[in-house]
Write a protein that binds this DNA or RNA. Structure first.
Length: 363
DNA sequence: ATCCGGGCGC
DNA sequence: GCGCCTGGAT
Protein backbone atom coordinates (compact mmCIF):
# COMPACT_ATOMS: atom_id res chain seq x y z
CA UNK A 1 0.00 0.00 0.00
CA UNK A 2 1.99 2.91 -1.25
CA UNK A 3 0.91 6.31 -0.10
CA UNK A 4 2.72 8.79 -2.24
CA UNK A 5 1.57 12.16 -3.46
CA UNK A 6 0.82 10.69 -6.78
CA UNK A 7 -2.29 11.62 -8.60
CA UNK A 8 -4.55 8.79 -9.47
CA UNK A 9 -5.95 10.53 -12.45
CA UNK A 10 -8.54 12.80 -13.82
CA UNK A 11 -12.06 11.56 -13.95
CA UNK A 12 -15.15 12.61 -15.72
CA UNK A 13 -18.07 12.19 -13.41
CA UNK A 14 -21.57 12.40 -14.64
CA UNK A 15 -24.22 13.29 -12.14
CA UNK A 16 -27.85 12.55 -12.61
CA UNK A 17 -29.70 15.58 -13.99
CA UNK A 18 -26.48 17.44 -13.96
CA UNK A 19 -23.55 17.40 -16.22
CA UNK A 20 -20.08 16.04 -16.70
CA UNK A 21 -17.61 17.11 -14.09
CA UNK A 22 -13.88 16.78 -14.36
CA UNK A 23 -12.27 15.78 -11.09
CA UNK A 24 -8.79 14.88 -10.02
CA UNK A 25 -8.29 12.43 -7.21
CA UNK A 26 -5.05 12.01 -5.36
CA UNK A 27 -3.99 9.04 -3.31
CA UNK A 28 -3.20 10.95 -0.18
CA UNK A 29 -6.22 13.14 0.12
CA UNK A 30 -8.89 10.76 -1.13
CA UNK A 31 -11.08 13.76 -1.63
CA UNK A 32 -11.36 16.52 -4.14
CA UNK A 33 -13.48 19.61 -4.06
CA UNK A 34 -14.53 21.99 -6.73
CA UNK A 35 -16.86 24.91 -6.85
CA UNK A 36 -19.40 26.20 -9.27
CA UNK A 37 -21.56 29.25 -8.87
CA UNK A 38 -24.45 27.41 -7.35
CA UNK A 39 -22.86 24.49 -5.64
CA UNK A 40 -19.71 22.97 -4.36
CA UNK A 41 -18.89 19.47 -5.38
CA UNK A 42 -16.89 17.05 -3.37
CA UNK A 43 -15.63 13.73 -4.58
CA UNK A 44 -14.42 11.13 -2.19
CA UNK A 45 -12.60 7.92 -2.83
CA UNK A 46 -12.66 4.95 -0.54
CA UNK A 47 -9.18 4.71 1.00
CA UNK A 48 -8.83 1.10 0.08
CA UNK A 49 -9.59 1.76 -3.57
CA UNK A 50 -6.48 3.38 -4.92
CA UNK A 51 -7.48 2.77 -8.43
CA UNK A 52 -11.11 3.66 -8.82
CA UNK A 53 -12.67 2.19 -11.89
CA UNK A 54 -16.35 2.47 -11.34
CA UNK A 55 -18.91 4.68 -9.68
CA UNK A 56 -19.06 2.47 -6.65
CA UNK A 57 -15.51 3.40 -5.73
CA UNK A 58 -16.30 7.08 -5.46
CA UNK A 59 -18.87 9.21 -3.72
CA UNK A 60 -19.78 12.64 -4.95
CA UNK A 61 -21.60 15.22 -2.90
CA UNK A 62 -23.20 18.35 -4.25
CA UNK A 63 -24.00 21.12 -1.85
CA UNK A 64 -25.96 24.27 -2.43
CA UNK A 65 -24.02 27.40 -1.71
CA UNK A 66 -25.24 30.19 0.49
CA UNK A 67 -26.86 27.96 3.03
CA UNK A 68 -25.22 28.39 6.38
CA UNK A 69 -24.76 24.72 6.87
CA UNK A 70 -24.25 23.47 3.37
CA UNK A 71 -26.69 20.80 2.61
CA UNK A 72 -26.05 17.71 0.66
CA UNK A 73 -28.38 17.44 -2.24
CA UNK A 74 -27.48 14.10 -3.65
CA UNK A 75 -24.78 11.62 -4.18
CA UNK A 76 -25.90 10.06 -7.38
CA UNK A 77 -23.14 9.24 -9.77
CA UNK A 78 -24.15 7.92 -13.08
CA UNK A 79 -20.85 7.43 -14.74
CA UNK A 80 -17.15 7.61 -14.00
CA UNK A 81 -14.62 7.62 -16.77
CA UNK A 82 -10.91 7.62 -16.17
CA UNK A 83 -9.25 10.32 -18.24
CA UNK A 84 -5.77 10.53 -19.53
CA UNK A 85 -3.95 13.13 -17.41
CA UNK A 86 -1.84 14.00 -20.40
CA UNK A 87 -4.89 15.60 -21.98
CA UNK A 88 -3.75 18.82 -20.42
CA UNK A 89 -5.20 21.02 -17.78
CA UNK A 90 -8.71 20.49 -16.62
CA UNK A 91 -11.35 22.63 -18.27
CA UNK A 92 -12.56 25.68 -16.47
CA UNK A 93 -14.88 24.15 -13.96
CA UNK A 94 -17.50 26.80 -13.81
CA UNK A 95 -17.87 27.17 -17.52
CA UNK A 96 -17.78 23.45 -17.95
CA UNK A 97 -20.47 22.80 -15.43
CA UNK A 98 -22.81 25.37 -16.86
CA UNK A 99 -22.24 25.13 -20.54
CA UNK A 100 -21.90 21.48 -21.16
CA UNK A 101 -25.27 19.94 -20.51
CA UNK A 102 -25.72 16.28 -20.01
CA UNK A 103 -26.86 14.64 -23.17
CA UNK A 104 -28.94 11.65 -22.30
CA UNK A 105 -30.39 12.98 -19.09
CA UNK A 106 -33.24 15.41 -18.60
CA UNK A 107 -32.16 18.99 -18.05
CA UNK A 108 -33.27 21.35 -15.43
CA UNK A 109 -34.16 24.86 -16.41
CA UNK A 110 -32.92 27.06 -13.65
CA UNK A 111 -30.24 25.82 -11.39
CA UNK A 112 -28.41 22.68 -12.29
CA UNK A 113 -29.07 21.24 -8.89
CA UNK A 114 -30.22 17.72 -8.74
CA UNK A 115 -33.64 16.18 -8.60
CA UNK A 116 -35.50 18.29 -6.12
CA UNK A 117 -38.73 17.19 -7.68
CA UNK A 118 -37.76 13.92 -9.17
CA UNK A 119 -40.69 11.68 -8.40
CA UNK A 120 -38.76 8.54 -9.08
CA UNK A 121 -36.44 9.24 -6.19
CA UNK A 122 -37.47 8.61 -2.63
CA UNK A 123 -37.98 11.95 -0.98
CA UNK A 124 -36.19 12.61 2.24
CA UNK A 125 -38.63 13.25 5.08
CA UNK A 126 -39.45 16.92 5.40
CA UNK A 127 -37.52 18.81 8.05
CA UNK A 128 -35.00 16.05 8.52
CA UNK A 129 -32.20 18.60 8.65
CA UNK A 130 -33.97 20.51 11.40
CA UNK A 131 -34.58 17.32 13.31
CA UNK A 132 -30.96 16.30 13.00
CA UNK A 133 -29.74 19.70 14.13
CA UNK A 134 -32.15 19.68 17.05
CA UNK A 135 -30.92 16.30 18.18
CA UNK A 136 -27.33 17.44 17.78
CA UNK A 137 -28.06 20.37 20.06
CA UNK A 138 -29.68 18.21 22.70
CA UNK A 139 -26.75 15.85 22.47
CA UNK A 140 -24.24 18.62 23.03
CA UNK A 141 -25.81 19.29 26.40
CA UNK A 142 -26.38 15.77 27.56
CA UNK A 143 -23.74 13.31 28.51
CA UNK A 144 -24.74 10.04 27.03
CA UNK A 145 -22.88 6.87 27.91
CA UNK A 146 -21.93 6.44 24.28
CA UNK A 147 -19.81 9.57 24.44
CA UNK A 148 -17.34 8.34 26.98
CA UNK A 149 -16.18 5.15 25.34
CA UNK A 150 -16.39 3.27 22.16
CA UNK A 151 -14.74 0.35 20.55
CA UNK A 152 -13.34 2.72 17.94
CA UNK A 153 -10.72 3.73 20.45
CA UNK A 154 -9.39 0.21 20.68
CA UNK A 155 -5.68 -0.10 20.12
CA UNK A 156 -4.97 3.40 18.93
CA UNK A 157 -1.26 3.01 19.45
CA UNK A 158 -0.88 -0.35 17.72
CA UNK A 159 0.44 -0.95 14.22
CA UNK A 160 -2.36 -0.81 11.64
CA UNK A 161 -3.01 -4.52 11.22
CA UNK A 162 -2.99 -5.15 14.97
CA UNK A 163 -5.20 -2.15 15.51
CA UNK A 164 -7.72 -3.48 12.99
CA UNK A 165 -7.71 -6.85 14.67
CA UNK A 166 -8.27 -5.18 18.03
CA UNK A 167 -11.18 -3.21 16.60
CA UNK A 168 -12.73 -6.40 15.29
CA UNK A 169 -12.40 -8.19 18.61
CA UNK A 170 -13.63 -5.14 20.43
CA UNK A 171 -16.73 -5.01 18.25
CA UNK A 172 -17.34 -8.69 18.76
CA UNK A 173 -17.22 -8.32 22.54
CA UNK A 174 -19.24 -5.12 22.64
CA UNK A 175 -22.57 -6.46 21.49
CA UNK A 176 -25.14 -6.43 24.28
CA UNK A 177 -22.47 -5.21 26.63
CA UNK A 178 -21.85 -1.88 28.31
CA UNK A 179 -18.83 -0.03 27.06
CA UNK A 180 -16.87 -0.01 30.28
CA UNK A 181 -17.28 -3.77 30.52
CA UNK A 182 -16.04 -4.23 26.97
CA UNK A 183 -13.17 -1.88 27.67
CA UNK A 184 -12.12 -3.84 30.74
CA UNK A 185 -12.17 -7.09 28.81
CA UNK A 186 -10.04 -5.62 26.02
CA UNK A 187 -7.64 -4.24 28.62
CA UNK A 188 -7.21 -7.66 30.22
CA UNK A 189 -6.71 -9.30 26.85
CA UNK A 190 -4.10 -6.69 26.01
CA UNK A 191 -2.30 -7.09 29.34
CA UNK A 192 -2.07 -10.81 28.73
CA UNK A 193 -0.84 -10.28 25.21
CA UNK A 194 -3.98 -11.89 23.86
CA UNK A 195 -5.06 -9.30 21.34
CA UNK A 196 -3.18 -10.81 18.44
CA UNK A 197 -4.43 -13.64 16.25
CA UNK A 198 -1.42 -15.90 16.87
CA UNK A 199 -1.74 -15.57 20.63
CA UNK A 200 -5.47 -16.16 20.59
CA UNK A 201 -5.04 -19.13 18.33
CA UNK A 202 -2.59 -20.66 20.79
CA UNK A 203 -4.48 -19.80 23.93
CA UNK A 204 -7.02 -21.98 25.68
CA UNK A 205 -10.62 -21.12 25.05
CA UNK A 206 -11.23 -21.28 28.79
CA UNK A 207 -8.46 -18.74 29.40
CA UNK A 208 -10.04 -16.34 26.96
CA UNK A 209 -13.41 -16.97 28.49
CA UNK A 210 -12.13 -15.99 31.93
CA UNK A 211 -10.42 -12.87 30.62
CA UNK A 212 -13.42 -11.49 28.78
CA UNK A 213 -15.88 -12.27 31.55
CA UNK A 214 -18.35 -10.67 32.22
CA UNK A 215 -19.16 -9.41 28.71
CA UNK A 216 -22.47 -10.65 27.45
CA UNK A 217 -22.49 -14.17 26.03
CA UNK A 218 -18.87 -14.70 26.94
CA UNK A 219 -18.91 -18.43 26.23
CA UNK A 220 -20.02 -17.99 22.64
CA UNK A 221 -17.74 -15.02 22.18
CA UNK A 222 -14.67 -16.87 23.46
CA UNK A 223 -15.36 -19.63 20.98
CA UNK A 224 -15.92 -17.12 18.19
CA UNK A 225 -12.66 -15.37 19.05
CA UNK A 226 -10.76 -18.60 18.57
CA UNK A 227 -12.45 -19.20 15.22
CA UNK A 228 -11.85 -15.65 14.04
CA UNK A 229 -8.18 -15.82 15.02
CA UNK A 230 -7.78 -19.01 13.03
CA UNK A 231 -9.51 -17.55 9.98
CA UNK A 232 -7.41 -14.40 10.27
CA UNK A 233 -4.21 -16.43 10.23
CA UNK A 234 -5.23 -18.82 7.48
CA UNK A 235 -6.92 -16.43 5.07
CA UNK A 236 -5.80 -12.91 5.87
CA UNK A 237 -2.16 -13.11 7.04
CA UNK A 238 -3.16 -12.18 10.56
CA UNK A 239 -5.14 -9.16 9.40
CA UNK A 240 -8.90 -8.85 9.09
CA UNK A 241 -11.03 -8.99 5.93
CA UNK A 242 -11.48 -5.67 4.19
CA UNK A 243 -14.84 -6.31 2.61
CA UNK A 244 -18.28 -6.27 4.11
CA UNK A 245 -19.10 -9.69 2.77
CA UNK A 246 -16.02 -11.32 4.21
CA UNK A 247 -16.56 -9.69 7.58
CA UNK A 248 -20.14 -10.96 7.64
CA UNK A 249 -18.90 -14.47 7.10
CA UNK A 250 -17.01 -14.37 10.40
CA UNK A 251 -18.77 -16.09 13.28
CA UNK A 252 -20.38 -13.60 15.64
CA UNK A 253 -20.16 -10.71 13.19
CA UNK A 254 -23.52 -9.60 11.85
CA UNK A 255 -24.59 -6.56 9.83
CA UNK A 256 -24.37 -4.06 12.66
CA UNK A 257 -20.82 -4.95 13.63
CA UNK A 258 -19.65 -5.50 10.06
CA UNK A 259 -20.54 -1.95 9.09
CA UNK A 260 -18.99 -0.63 12.27
CA UNK A 261 -15.75 -2.46 11.55
CA UNK A 262 -15.67 -1.27 7.94
CA UNK A 263 -16.07 2.30 9.21
CA UNK A 264 -13.63 2.18 12.06
CA UNK A 265 -11.00 -0.30 10.98
CA UNK A 266 -10.85 0.46 7.27
CA UNK A 267 -12.27 3.97 7.22
CA UNK A 268 -14.49 2.69 4.45
CA UNK A 269 -18.16 3.54 4.69
CA UNK A 270 -20.18 0.78 3.08
CA UNK A 271 -23.39 1.38 4.93
CA UNK A 272 -25.02 2.84 7.99
CA UNK A 273 -24.37 1.12 11.26
CA UNK A 274 -27.91 0.50 12.49
CA UNK A 275 -28.45 -0.76 15.98
CA UNK A 276 -31.62 -0.94 17.97
CA UNK A 277 -31.52 2.78 18.87
CA UNK A 278 -31.12 3.96 15.29
CA UNK A 279 -33.78 1.46 14.27
CA UNK A 280 -36.26 2.60 16.88
CA UNK A 281 -35.72 6.34 16.47
CA UNK A 282 -35.90 6.27 12.68
CA UNK A 283 -39.24 4.53 12.97
CA UNK A 284 -40.53 7.02 15.53
CA UNK A 285 -39.46 9.97 13.40
CA UNK A 286 -41.05 8.49 10.32
CA UNK A 287 -37.67 8.55 8.60
CA UNK A 288 -38.34 5.09 7.23
CA UNK A 289 -41.55 3.28 6.41
CA UNK A 290 -42.40 1.05 9.37
CA UNK A 291 -39.60 -1.44 9.43
CA UNK A 292 -39.31 -4.56 11.51
CA UNK A 293 -35.59 -5.22 11.54
CA UNK A 294 -32.49 -3.03 11.75
CA UNK A 295 -31.44 -4.36 8.35
CA UNK A 296 -34.63 -3.06 6.71
CA UNK A 297 -34.10 0.25 8.46
CA UNK A 298 -30.54 0.46 7.20
CA UNK A 299 -31.58 -0.03 3.59
CA UNK A 300 -34.50 2.40 3.83
CA UNK A 301 -32.34 5.03 5.48
CA UNK A 302 -29.52 4.69 3.01
CA UNK A 303 -31.85 5.56 0.15
CA UNK A 304 -32.17 9.18 1.17
CA UNK A 305 -29.76 10.04 3.97
CA UNK A 306 -26.73 11.82 2.48
CA UNK A 307 -23.68 9.68 2.78
CA UNK A 308 -21.70 12.08 4.86
CA UNK A 309 -24.25 11.57 7.63
CA UNK A 310 -23.90 7.81 7.55
CA UNK A 311 -21.19 7.64 10.17
CA UNK A 312 -22.19 10.44 12.58
CA UNK A 313 -25.84 9.42 12.63
CA UNK A 314 -25.09 6.35 14.72
CA UNK A 315 -23.42 7.90 17.78
CA UNK A 316 -25.86 10.79 17.48
CA UNK A 317 -28.99 8.66 17.65
CA UNK A 318 -27.55 6.13 20.06
CA UNK A 319 -26.82 8.86 22.59
CA UNK A 320 -30.19 10.45 21.95
CA UNK A 321 -31.80 7.06 22.46
CA UNK A 322 -29.96 6.49 25.72
CA UNK A 323 -30.92 9.81 27.25
CA UNK A 324 -34.15 11.14 25.75
CA UNK A 325 -35.75 8.99 23.10
CA UNK A 326 -35.55 5.92 25.29
CA UNK A 327 -37.16 2.65 24.29
CA UNK A 328 -39.53 2.79 27.23
CA UNK A 329 -41.33 6.02 28.09
CA UNK A 330 -39.41 8.43 25.87
CA UNK A 331 -39.00 11.88 27.38
CA UNK A 332 -40.88 13.75 24.67
CA UNK A 333 -41.30 16.63 27.11
CA UNK A 334 -37.56 17.18 27.12
CA UNK A 335 -37.17 16.72 23.39
CA UNK A 336 -36.76 19.91 21.39
CA UNK A 337 -37.91 18.33 18.14
CA UNK A 338 -41.07 16.72 19.48
CA UNK A 339 -43.00 19.20 17.33
CA UNK A 340 -41.55 17.56 14.26
CA UNK A 341 -41.97 14.00 15.45
CA UNK A 342 -45.06 12.08 14.37
CA UNK A 343 -44.72 9.80 17.38
CA UNK A 344 -44.25 12.45 20.03
CA UNK A 345 -46.33 11.86 23.14
CA UNK A 346 -48.08 9.11 21.28
CA UNK A 347 -46.22 6.16 22.60
CA UNK A 348 -48.80 3.58 23.42
CA UNK A 349 -47.62 3.53 27.00
CA UNK A 350 -49.25 0.22 27.77
CA UNK A 351 -49.35 1.20 31.39
CA UNK A 352 -49.24 -2.23 32.75
CA UNK A 353 -52.31 -2.91 34.76
CA UNK A 354 -50.96 -3.22 38.28
CA UNK A 355 -51.43 -6.76 39.37
CA UNK A 356 -52.28 -5.69 42.83
CA UNK A 357 -54.67 -7.75 44.75
CA UNK A 358 -57.44 -5.41 45.56
CA UNK A 359 -60.75 -6.11 47.03
CA UNK A 360 -62.20 -5.35 43.61
CA UNK A 361 -60.16 -7.90 41.68
CA UNK A 362 -60.90 -10.61 44.10
CA UNK A 363 -64.56 -10.20 43.93
C1' DA B 1 -39.34 -8.09 36.94
C1' DT B 2 -37.77 -6.27 32.68
C1' DC B 3 -34.53 -4.42 29.47
C1' DC B 4 -30.42 -4.26 27.01
C1' DG B 5 -25.64 -0.58 21.80
C1' DG B 6 -26.58 -8.65 18.37
C1' DG B 7 -26.12 -12.89 16.26
C1' DC B 8 -27.34 -17.56 15.40
C1' DG B 9 -29.86 -21.81 14.84
C1' DC B 10 -34.09 -23.49 14.10
C1' DG C 1 -39.89 -14.91 12.64
C1' DC C 2 -38.59 -16.72 17.49
C1' DG C 3 -36.10 -18.23 21.28
C1' DC C 4 -31.81 -18.36 23.24
C1' DC C 5 -27.42 -16.96 25.15
C1' DT C 6 -25.36 -13.79 29.78
C1' DG C 7 -24.77 -10.53 33.78
C1' DG C 8 -25.78 -6.00 35.22
C1' DA C 9 -28.76 -1.94 35.49
C1' DT C 10 -33.19 0.22 36.51
Amino acid sequence: MCLCHQQVGHMLIQLRNYTLLPLALSQTKFTNRMHTRAASIKAEMAPSEHNPKSESDICVYVRKKRSRKPQVITENIVKVEPQDPKLGSLPDIEEFAYNKPSIDLPQRKSKPILNDNDKTEVKPPSNWVKVLEGIREMRSLENAPVDSMGCEKAGNSLPPNERRFAVLISSLLSSQTKDHVTHGAIQRLHDNNLLKPEAIDNADESTIKELIYPVGFYTRKASNMKKIAKISLLDYHGDIPNTLEALLSLPGIGPKMAHLVMNVAWNNVQGICVDTHVHRICNRLGWVPQTKTPEETRKALQIWLPKEEWVPVNPLLVGFGQTICTPLRPSCGLCSVSGLCPSAFREATPKKIPRVKTKLSES
